[in-house]
Computed example of a mutant assay.
Amino acid sequence: MGVNVLRLDRRLQFLRAVMGDDGYGNVITGWAAHGVPVWGARKDVSDAEQVAAGRLLATVTARFIIRRSSFAAGLTPMDQFTCDGATWAIDGIKEVAQPRRGFLEITATKGAA
């Protein structure tokens, strides 16, 4: 996917884990919107199916390109995001070589419906 022909036509809403108390002394983890939605491009790179505990599990891995910003530079693999109604787990984040420091590439995985 060349950066020169990128179509940033997807909206990504990043999510960050938040800790809370359920009122009975138990710590619970939820997800809250982190920042405002950003535009990105998506390219699917693989899919997989496997059987575990008698269930068929399917996943899709994709690469998303977003513009680099101070907000985007603060994202980590501990965050998640939603795009097109699905929640994606971030596997890795790296700078795109061209144009220099202008974009970030996020590799992410979701369970296939």
Results as ranks from 00 to 15, higher is better:
Pro37Cys: 08
Leu8Met: 11
Val45Gln: 08
Ala97Asp: 12
Arg11Glu: 13
Val96Asp: 08
Arg68His: 04
Arg100Ile: 14
Lys94His: 06
Ala97Trp: 08
Ala48Asn: 14
Lys94Glu: 12
Trp31Arg: 10
Val3Arg: 01
Val5Tyr: 07
Gly35Cys: 09
Asn4Trp: 06
Val60Cys: 04
Met1Leu: 07
Phe71Lys: 03
Leu104Tyr: 15
Val38Asp: 07
Lys110Asn: 08
Asp21Tyr: 00
Asp44His: 03
Val96Leu: 15
Lys94Gln: 12
Met19Glu: 11
Pro77His: 10
Met78Cys: 02
Ala41Asp: 14
Met19Ile: 01
Val36Pro: 04
Glu49Ser: 14
Arg10Asp: 01
Tyr24Asp: 05
Asn4Leu: 08
Leu56Gln: 11
Gly85Gln: 08
Arg68Gly: 00
Ala58Ser: 15
Val36Lys: 14
Phe14Arg: 03
His34Asp: 08
Asp47Gln: 04
Glu95Cys: 10
Arg42Trp: 04
Leu12Phe: 08
Met78Asp: 09
Thr29Leu: 06
Ile106Ser: 05
Pro77Tyr: 05
Ile106Met: 09
Arg7Cys: 06
Arg42Glu: 10
Thr109Pro: 04
Ser46Arg: 15
Glu95Phe: 12
Gly85Pro: 07
Asp47Ile: 00
Ala48Gln: 13
Arg67Leu: 10
Asp47Ser: 09
Ile90Asp: 03
Leu75Ser: 02
Glu105Tyr: 08
Asp91Gly: 01
